[in-house]
Amino acid sequence: MTVPVRPDARRNATPYLYGREAAAVARVLESGQYGHSDVTEQFERRVANWLGVPEAVSVSSGTAALHAAFLAAGVGPGDEVVVPSMTFCATIQAILATGATPRFVDIDPDTLCVTGDLLMEAVTDATAAVAPVLFGGRAVDLSSVQGEFDRRGIVVVEDAAHAFGSRDGSRPVGAGGTALTCFSFGPIKNLTCGQGGMVIPRSPQEAERLRRLRLLGVVQSQNERADITTYHVDSFGLRYQLSSINAAIGLAQLDRFATTERVRRRLWRAYRQALAQVDGVTLVDVDVDRAVPHLCQVRVPRRDEVFAELRARGIGVGVHYPPNHRQPAFAAWRRSLPATERAGAEILSLPFHQHLTRDDIDHVASELERALKTTGGS
């Protein structure tokens, strides 16, 4: 049977461009300066000003941001990092890249995020850092346990890949000053650079460590090296700079971020309304009044059957994410995480991107209701 579908309901998430990105990239191409340049540093300053923080250090990806942040915090071999299993595998790979090991922790089933209490329960004498994941864009409030982390010398590295623009109470995520906050500016993030990332440091010294890490341990900046005959490498480093081509896209996106915030919240609320009368569906709460949603997720019975039925009907659903503690690469650190395992069997990501209309959302909700009836899930 052929089922008619709306074009935007069936498409997977794609970047939403406002129209000035191509011209911004063209100006960089014409300049001939494609690496880390004044455009990159302008993007860093603009993000720092937008967040209300002294400094922001750009890198080549969200994964690079996490890796650099862990290294800047001194995480290394023999250390443990407490991290939720419910995250993209990049979070875990960044931990392993430092020589440390993950200690997986369970989640709050209502939010798919960790809590301060859950993190504290998982802390051991080997814990050097905790890595809360701001799943779907929802902030994680650790104020109740931050004092204990400080007392134990445990660093907080926030995986805020989903959460650029979200707020933690009255402050933007990244502006709290108690965590190294890592953003991703990948293709379908709330703000895209095409590819890129950012670390918000806690101090000028941490910012300086991050800048050397991203530039192969070289002491002098690119501008300083232009006027000297040598340079100095005084530490380990990687080639993690953000290209000016990517930074130009980010600058164009940042100019329109107020629109991004408004539209993404409106689309998420439209889903909440459309799904309210659909039996068998639980919408995962992202705290939409403070978050800039990155995902719209539901929990459904018979998830795999519902997934297959919706894909057959042309609806671009996905799963974010298969729990990492069940992945073969991370089997050595497997623990019993009952809430994560239940969520991993039930979560379903609905199409969520700025190309959607209210009609698209109503169509997805209707098809989801049909799929649940077909599979016996409602």
Results as ranks from 00 to 15, higher is better:
residue 157 V to N: 01
residue 31 S to A: 09
residue 337 L to F: 05
residue 288 V to Y: 00
residue 150 D to P: 13
residue 170 S to V: 15
residue 66 L to T: 06
residue 104 F to P: 10
residue 88 F to K: 05
residue 359 D to K: 08
residue 232 H to F: 09
residue 62 G to Y: 02
residue 218 V to D: 06
residue 350 L to A: 01
residue 41 E to P: 01
residue 230 T to L: 09
residue 305 E to M: 03
residue 176 G to H: 05
residue 369 E to D: 13
residue 298 V to L: 05
residue 279 D to F: 08
residue 254 L to T: 01
residue 68 A to C: 13
residue 297 Q to L: 08
residue 330 F to A: 14
residue 102 P to K: 03
residue 217 G to D: 13
residue 47 V to G: 00
residue 354 Q to F: 12
residue 129 A to W: 01
residue 264 R to S: 02
residue 320 H to M: 02
residue 159 D to K: 10
residue 122 A to H: 04
residue 202 R to E: 10
residue 240 Y to H: 04
residue 184 S to I: 08
residue 101 T to R: 15
residue 282 T to W: 05
residue 351 P to A: 09
residue 311 R to L: 15
residue 96 L to I: 01
residue 218 V to E: 12
residue 322 P to Y: 10
residue 352 F to M: 08
residue 337 L to V: 04
residue 188 I to H: 00
residue 36 H to K: 08
residue 337 L to H: 08
residue 58 S to A: 11
residue 276 A to F: 06
residue 247 A to H: 05
residue 352 F to C: 03
residue 300 V to Q: 00
residue 282 T to I: 06
residue 343 A to M: 06
residue 37 S to Q: 04
residue 240 Y to R: 03
residue 285 D to N: 11
residue 206 E to N: 07
residue 165 G to D: 00
residue 66 L to G: 01
residue 72 A to R: 02
residue 70 F to G: 14
residue 166 S to A: 13
residue 275 L to Y: 13
residue 192 T to V: 05
residue 307 F to E: 10
residue 345 A to T: 12
residue 157 V to H: 04
residue 76 G to H: 03
residue 258 A to K: 06
residue 306 V to M: 02
residue 88 F to C: 04
residue 67 H to E: 14
residue 260 T to Q: 00
residue 133 V to S: 00
residue 209 R to L: 04
residue 155 V to A: 10
residue 232 H to I: 14
residue 327 Q to N: 15
residue 55 E to G: 03
residue 300 V to L: 08
residue 359 D to Q: 11
residue 191 L to T: 00
residue 105 V to F: 06
residue 183 F to A: 01
residue 287 D to L: 01
residue 322 P to C: 15
residue 367 E to D: 07
residue 194 G to W: 02
residue 123 V to K: 03
residue 332 A to N: 15
residue 337 L to S: 05
residue 295 L to S: 02
residue 215 L to P: 00
residue 154 I to Q: 02
residue 352 F to P: 00
residue 169 G to C: 10
residue 140 V to D: 04
residue 343 A to S: 13
residue 280 G to S: 02
residue 155 V to F: 10
residue 235 S to R: 12
residue 70 F to R: 02
residue 355 H to L: 03
residue 116 G to V: 11
residue 301 P to I: 04
residue 114 V to G: 13
residue 51 L to D: 05
residue 10 R to Q: 05
residue 202 R to D: 13
residue 303 R to L: 04
residue 130 V to D: 07
residue 111 T to H: 04
residue 265 R to K: 11
residue 124 T to G: 12
residue 301 P to N: 07
residue 368 L to Q: 06
residue 19 G to A: 10
residue 45 R to K: 15
residue 125 D to L: 03
residue 226 A to W: 11
residue 205 Q to T: 08
residue 305 E to S: 14
residue 170 S to N: 10
residue 34 Y to E: 03
residue 109 P to L: 14
residue 44 E to Q: 14
residue 172 P to A: 13
residue 321 Y to F: 02
residue 168 D to N: 12
residue 371 A to L: 11
residue 223 N to P: 02
residue 300 V to F: 09
residue 351 P to H: 04
residue 156 V to N: 08
residue 44 E to V: 04
residue 22 A to M: 13
residue 11 R to E: 08
residue 311 R to Q: 13
residue 145 V to E: 01
residue 30 E to T: 10
residue 263 V to C: 02
residue 155 V to Q: 14
residue 143 S to T: 13
residue 258 A to T: 15
residue 47 V to A: 00
residue 153 G to E: 09
residue 9 A to K: 01
residue 111 T to Q: 01
residue 144 S to N: 07
residue 151 R to A: 06
residue 115 T to W: 12
residue 97 A to E: 11
residue 107 I to V: 05
residue 194 G to Y: 07
residue 158 E to D: 14
residue 250 G to L: 09
residue 67 H to F: 14
